[in-house]
Design a protein around this nucleic acid. Structure first.
Lengths: 189, 189
DNA sequence: CTCGTATGAATGAATG
DNA sequence: CATTCATTCATACGAG
């Protein structure tokens, strides 16, 4: 930012963060953040912000609009992507560094898929809309502190080892063997 | 639906994006709907179907399996996602950089509880979709040709004009004049 | 111009 | 139904 942030037009055009969005209507296929915008976003991210709330997104977007055209969704996507890729990269790194030992995804093959069947829907989908009186305390975000401290890695890792052979317990009852007639109409509903 | 039908013909035709899992049991990534499937689903959605029942899901899935591999859960998720994103994108909110010098926070109109914001995503207003109820006996397919019906949704068209008329007002409370070295601009959070 | 990489955008799949 | 994660698609840029 210190490096010559002009009012709104000029924007350093070095690197990929050229600021052609802010001036001289170039094409606008997709948002191209300016270096200042990236800096602010990165600072926020480094400060711990990972999943900004809507309010935060709006505020960030408003502030960043000073540096150039930006929309809320850009901020939203930026954080999504940044977080995702951080994680992705970390996974690869750990996979690369510690391959001799456990990679933290030592998948215990405990058939995690068995949740897919039979209760109410074809697959899980706990759709319990019945009146539960469980009052969820609507917890709004602090709005002032974004240090969510979510450095926790969720070790979820649902095995995506999806082969084409019976990964899902429930079998499609639709006999694909015989292709439906051509005159199909969705009058089946 | 959204402008993102960026895949009416090139669904993963380059390398790793194996794309078509429609036939010939190839890799089993995630479901990659074909254009026809998307069209049918979209039609159903536009016709008012929002939360298909188990039975309907089953039938839809059966019908759509003609166009390619599909499972019931795909249909279910499709509707869930479509509905959710429809809503979320309908939240563009009057948040606009043009005139937010106005106290836009007076919209907390009545003494209703402030349920606004706080956890909602928005951005990207698209078309308008009135809310209808489920229409029974939908007749969708034109009996034989299912890929010539519409071509009008293919437009990418990010309705955002690429103007730089941000005309950023003066509500930038961050001290740009005597900006501290860092992070003070983030104080708005 | 082509290709590789970084990243914006979209969406399938879950989870709570 | 709201929110998040993971994966993929699409595009901008720089290198060669």
């Amino acid at each position: 930012m210190e490096e010559g942030f002009s009012s709104f037009c000029i924007k350093g055009s070095h690197g990929r963060g050229n600021g052609n969005n802010g001036s001289s209507g170039t094409k606008c296929g997709r948002w191209n953040p300016t270096t200042e915008q990236v800096k602010v976003l990165t600072d926020l991210f480094r400060s711990g912000l990972r999943t900004p709330s809507t309010d935060q997104i709006q505020k960030i977007s408003t502030q960043l609009s000073f540096y150039g055209k930006i929309e809320s969704k850009n901020v939203f996507y930026w954080f999504q992507n940044h977080k995702a890729r951080e994680r992705q990269k970390r996974r690869k790194v750990s996979f690369d560094e510690n391959d001799h030992f456990i990679s933290r995804d030592n998948n215990n093959n405990n058939n995690i898929n068995n949740k897919i069947s039979s209760s109410k829907r074809f697959f899980e989908v706990k759709e319990y809309q019945s009146d539960q009186r469980v009052i969820e305390t609507l917890q709004l975000f602090p709005l002032n502190s974004f240090e969510e401290t979510d450095q926790q890695e969720k070790l979820r890792f649902h095995g995506n080892e999806c082969r084409e052979t019976s990964t899902f317990p429930y079998t499609i009852s639709t006999s694909e063997l015989d292709h439906p007639p051509l005159d199909l109409r969705l009058s089946f509903l």
